[in-house]
Write a protein that binds this DNA or RNA. Structure first.
Lengths: 214, 214, 214, 214
DNA sequence: TTCTAACCGAGACGGTACGTCCGGTCTTCAA
DNA sequence: TTGAAGACCGGACGTACCGTCTCGGTTAGAA
């Protein structure tokens, strides 16, 4: 988030328009140049703004980019498609579509890469981007439990670790497929992935298990 | 791989010693500085080599780092632990241990990030790092089929898509957990992940399923 | 001269202090290192300035050095010593003393050398260094004419060619002696040179002609 | 001069053809590129020779260029034109024509410039280029004395200083005019220069003095 | 004829300076 | 106080050249 001044505001107020213009310009620059070629001067020029204005709001390139792309990830949602299997397939395809967008893919990997050696950035990425999406797992899981598709949480147990695990499996698989293996995710892949996630490797991969309703 | 000249060799041949010194120096610099602070000059100095000698072999930082870390990933292996479950847990922990090494984690993410906007690098990463590790999935799967833990491939079907899928799930989950969520992977996590992978979400998470022998 | 921006000034103005520090540092570096070993980085370091700041003002080493040494040549002056002969001897010795200074000799020859293949630099050298010194010839000649030592300009004639000629003879002889032949210029040489200049080769080189008043 | 091995020659002798090809290539490169852009690799390529072959003969760029251009200056000669005045004008025009050749002008200034901070080179330039041309002054002076145009040397006096002086005046004026002032030398300038050299400044510049036979 | 030392072309090598670029800060003026 | 403009410091970039070196291979003259 941009660093707004604390204390009582005096003098000329900051332009909210500038904030939006900068974030838009950042996304545009990410699309056009990718992370490596993106420069603060370029973003400022695209936004019709001085570099000073950027640095008054964000401490550095990484923070700016995190904010610029975080909003993209908040677009993800989990409409009720009637079954856990359909819900998972839906969110996988949604997430994959998001990662096809160049500003999302390049920015996500760039900030993750940088965060491996920058603890503050790591925290920021988790707060602004990663952990917020666990809501999808939480919602889908609750819905499936209501439907009776998966067993309810045992009394007294903490569901958080399991939620984290499922999140890592889904998000990890999608990210790895799209950004590391670099193959597209289509309906077929989503279907096969969901089959494994729900039924496991040891289950026979028959038509019933793969495409049928649970 | 470093760009060696083609055609018949004439003139002084390149020093193989320099190649090794450079790759070693690159890994050392990654450990000491991380990706962001690593500079070609520094690598050259550590290797006792001129900058020219680096650029004669690798066009830029990314290409160099891919080669320098690729060998780390080849260290992964799949000892026979008696069951598919144990084999998966073993490779997960091995992979996680590798990703704890600073030169591996920072380099992997950096090249993946850059590869989102650099097709040539993308290809290079896949060849030198990613695809080579599918051998682990192939081996583990064949072993499990011999043991009867998973059904054999149906006649006439192509196992490649399924291998790719499993690879994306395992590698993706481990990478996401360690580098995106940024939580450590311990024996417990490996156990729980393996349970999901083998049995699926819909299976009851009882003691038998979780820790028992298959 | 340093390349100052035209148009209406906006943004932070250039530091005049930096200009001076750079020119001083350049002269110091010339003394310490000579032309060949002088580097832009070194000059920047001596001036306590970033390299960018140098290149913002001067496009290259040669332009910078021209400005740095031009001021040295403006130190030359022509005090009235009572006779044309004494005036010439005086300016010769002054010029010779200047060319003994390492920053002057090495810089002068270097920029002249470069100017043989660089028209822009050639123009710059002439404006900033060479042509400015013709004032000495103009002044000395006028003074001698007032004294009646040399005939006045014929009516309607242009004195410029003759001034140029005398300038080339005096400056050329001093430069050639000090920098090409590489012999020192002492009072005796100045006396003998002046005798030739004023009386010509065909005049008998007797004591009267050599040292006496005209 | 190229550094030929001393001691008894054994093994394959050096190619004399290579020597000539290198010197020719050096002059060609000087014409095409000037001193600043001339590189040893380029010279080697032009000569169809390896860099090693250059460095086996000359220790560095400057030494090579001195040898390459020294021969040009030996082309100067002093045909008897019947009078001291005509002889001087002739040699001035000859020298000026030589300095119009780009390889001569750029090389001369470059080696002189470098010699201001390199004693060994300074010596070499004097031997190979500068002092050799004093023969012209010696010859012209003797001829003029035989003709009775200038007084003979007083018995017991050393003519060397006067020869040096005249040489500095003539060569200096021509070099300064062509390379520093950067104006062409034509017949008119040569005539006016000779008038000053022979008659001095104090002589009235009448037609008789200027253009008449002595 | 065979040996052999010195030659040759090619090109990699260590080293160093170049001129450019960018990140992030500061300084000016105007709103 | 904000904002636009742009100069500032610091430092890495990738290139170019110098002069050295190490290859494989050639070429006289000596044995």
């Amino acid at each position: 988030m941009s660093t707004h001044p604390t204390g009582k505001p005096t003098g000329r107020p900051r332009s909210a328009q500038a904030d939006l213009a900068i974030l838009d310009a950042t996304r545009a620059a990410l699309v056009a140049l990718g992370w490596g070629k993106l420069t603060m001067s370029d973003v400022a020029a695209r936004a019709g703004v001085a570099k000073t204005t950027l640095y008054r709001r964000w401490a550095n390139k990484h923070d700016l980019v995190v904010d610029a792309v975080a909003i993209l990830f908040d677009e993800l949602e989990l409409p009720d498609r009637g079954s856990l299997r359909a819900d998972v397939e839906g969110v996988v395809l949604q997430f994959a579509a998001l990662l096809e967008r160049p500003e999302a893919k390049t920015a996500l990997m760039a900030v993750v890469a940088e965060s491996t050696t920058d603890a503050a950035l790591r925290l920021r990425v988790r707060e602004a981007v990663v952990n917020r999406q666990k809501r999808l797992v939480v919602a889908g899981r609750a819905r499936a439990q209501r439907r009776g598709e998966i067993p309810p949480d045992p009394a007294g147990s903490d569901p958080a670790p399991q939620i984290d695990l499922i999140f890592d499996v889904i998000a990890g698989a999608v990210i790895h497929r799209t950004l590391v293996t670099c193959e597209p995710i289509d309906a077929d892949w989503a279907e096969r992935f969901t089959a494994v996630l729900l039924g496991g490797l040891t289950a026979p991969l028959d038509g019933q298990n793969r495409a049928g309703s649970v």
